[in-house]
């Protein structure tokens, strides 16, 4: 760009062009939905199989394994994305606050599980998954996330009224509708 005298039309054209240059890359979010979606789905199915088929004493053991793996992978992916990212937008900050708060809520619920009761914990966690997905859908203005979140909420309500082992199946289903399907659709988004 060379210095020159601008007229108001040219000024407006520059402003418009530059504002359109800054586009939030929603695809970066898709990888986190897919990562946590697959790990949670594997954990839910693993828990169900260890409980109902293998009759293992500690069927829940798959959860800490998957969550630690997820935490390490998310940290690596996040730091790689940060290295190549040249800007920080309001959307980045909003999403970071949302999912940071989500993590604190989730850990609190898991820590209080013995007092809340095992039968209520998973449906509450499903409600939380739906909330995170719904708000993200609103921030990114991406309809499949909003629809997935609503489906997840319905599954969470149903989960309050079924036995624990069936809750695990509903949890798996909620992950497919709220994380995996919207995650793949988000990845394909232009």
């Amino acid at each position: 760009m060379n210095p020159k005298e601008l007229d108001p039309k040219e000024s407006l054209a520059i402003i418009t062009k530059m504002i359109h240059q800054t586009q939030f890359n929603a695809k970066h979010q898709a990888v986190f939905f897919l990562l946590w979606g697959w790990l949670t789905l594997i954990a839910a199915i693993g828990h169900y199989l260890l409980l109902e088929v293998a009759h293992y004493k500690m069927p829940w053991i798959v959860w800490p394994i998957m969550m630690i793996l997820g935490g390490v992978a998310a940290a690596i992916i996040g730091s790689r994305q940060a290295r190549v990212k040249l800007t920080a937008t309001h959307l980045d900050r909003s999403l970071a606050y949302l999912w940071g708060g989500f993590a604190v809520f989730l850990l609190t619920i898991l820590g209080c599980m013995p007092w809340i009761g095992f039968s209520k914990t998973y449906p509450i966690i499903m409600l939380l998954y739906a909330l995170g997905t719904f708000v993200t859908g609103g921030i990114l203005q991406f309809m499949p996330l909003k629809i997935g979140a609503i489906a997840c909420w319905l599954l969470a309500i149903a989960a309050f009224f079924v036995p624990f082992s069936l809750q695990l199946i509903l949890l798996g289903a909620s992950i497919i509708v709220a994380y995996l399907i919207p995650g793949y659709l988000l990845q394909q988004k232009q």
Partner: peptide, 13 residues
């Protein structure tokens, strides 16, 4: 003007 327009849309760049 271009610099300021870009910076208006992001937290930092």
């Amino acid at each position: 003007l271009a610099i300021m327009s870009l910076l208006m849309t992001v937290d930092d760049a």
